[in-house]
């Protein structure tokens, strides 16, 4: 587990989750286990990204941490308290996904309304200023763009001056400029030492903003560490080889049956192989299968994501469109000649 860059404090962990489980009933099908025995500890002051494909259980987990949904099993402590108590005490707040605003109120009225529910909120003018909404204060919510509405949600989240701030896909649906502006605002805020936990399916955001990434898939933590640690974990490392001329079909079949091989892609003579243990796969390829010109590629964050979750992340760059190619043909750093 990665330690926070902030100096250690005597404070309770910002978030402590053990054995968290939540199922949803589905008509005519088995229940969906959205969160499946999840364990997670977030030290105070850390900026953590919660990464995973759609449906991995991110929002369900965050809803339970915020006391909006009751877990089927497991325990949650937020700033040392039960979720709903932490919300009432103003220790935790959140920027939720789209929806949930009253369209006929103005920006400043919305903030005032939410401020009225807290005992000692930060001044309305102050949070409006910090969220960069001063010029839009008297605009109707219905006339605000998606990015502006998101900044409004951020302003509301600042009202209790929370120790823990949770952001659920805060930039979903924003254009590039709005995303950059949003993160600039967040960065300024996080410098103050708040614990920030954000869910995203944009790798780029997790990489740029978080000091720790927790990758979840099918309701479980599949990787936990810094970006470079996840890259170095070996997940998503690929082997590229030239295959022998004869009897290609059965050769590929033999490659597929090698222990730990998860994915085989053929492009002409060149074969790209993803494997959990690339060392032993490489040995077998060279010694037993007559492969030539072998290269082992270090994983990108993207290929690690694919290997760990079995799905592609949302593409943020134009060249991300090519999906599989980005994952398997990038970043060759080591070369082993046969």
């Amino acid at each position: 587990m990665v330690q926070s860059a902030h100096p250690p404090t005597s404070r309770a962990p910002a978030i402590e989750v053990h054995g968290l489980t939540k199922q949803f009933r589905r008509a005519g099908q088995d229940p969906l286990r959205a969160v499946d025995g999840l364990d997670l500890t977030v030290p105070a002051g850390q900026i953590m990204a919660f990464l995973g494909p759609n449906g991995a259980g991110k929002t369900t987990t965050l809803d339970m941490v915020l006391g909006l949904t009751t877990p089927d099993a497991g325990t949650i402590r937020v700033a040392g308290m039960a979720p709903r108590a932490a919300v009432r005490a103003g220790k935790v707040s959140a920027v939720l996904q789209s929806g949930g605003l009253l369209a006929d109120l103005t920006v400043v009225e919305t903030v005032r309304l939410i401020a009225s529910t807290f005992d000692n909120p930060r001044p309305v003018g102050e949070v409006v200023e910090r969220a960069g909404l001063a010029e839009l204060a008297n605009r109707r919510v219905s006339k605000c763009s998606g990015g502006e509405q998101q900044r409004l949600r951020f302003a509301m989240a600042l009202l209790p001056d929370p120790e823990v701030l949770i952001l659920d896909e805060p930039t979903a649906g924003m254009d590039v400029t709005a995303r950059h502006e949003f993160w600039a605002t967040m960065r300024a805020d996080a410098a103050a030492g708040r614990t920030v936990l954000f869910a995203t399916h944009y790798l780029e955001e997790a990489d740029a903003f978080a000091e720790r990434i927790v990758l979840i898939s099918a309701g479980r933590v599949v990787a936990d560490g810094t970006t470079s640690e996840i890259r170095a974990s070996g997940a998503g490392r690929t082997i590229a080889v030239d295959m022998p001329e004869s009897d290609r079909e059965s050769w590929i079949g033999r490659v597929r049956s090698l222990p730990g091989v998860t994915h085989v892609e053929v492009r002409g003579r060149r074969v790209y192989i993803a494997a959990s243990d690339t060392d032993s796969a490489a040995l077998a390829l060279l010694r037993d299968l007559g492969a030539r010109n072998l290269e082992i590629a270090a994983p990108t964050l993207d290929s690690a994501f694919v290997a760990l979750t079995g799905e592609h992340s949302a593409a943020t760059e134009p060249d991300g469109e090519s999906g599989g190619e980005t994952a398997y043909a990038a970043d060759y750093v080591g070369e082993v000649s046969a």
Binding site: L96, T117, M156
Partner: peptide, 13 residues
């Protein structure tokens, strides 16, 4: 239903 309830769920109300 449209999500304002979730927003209020983040307050002491």
């Amino acid at each position: 239903m449209q999500g304002w309830g979730r927003q209020l769920g983040l307050t002491p109300m």
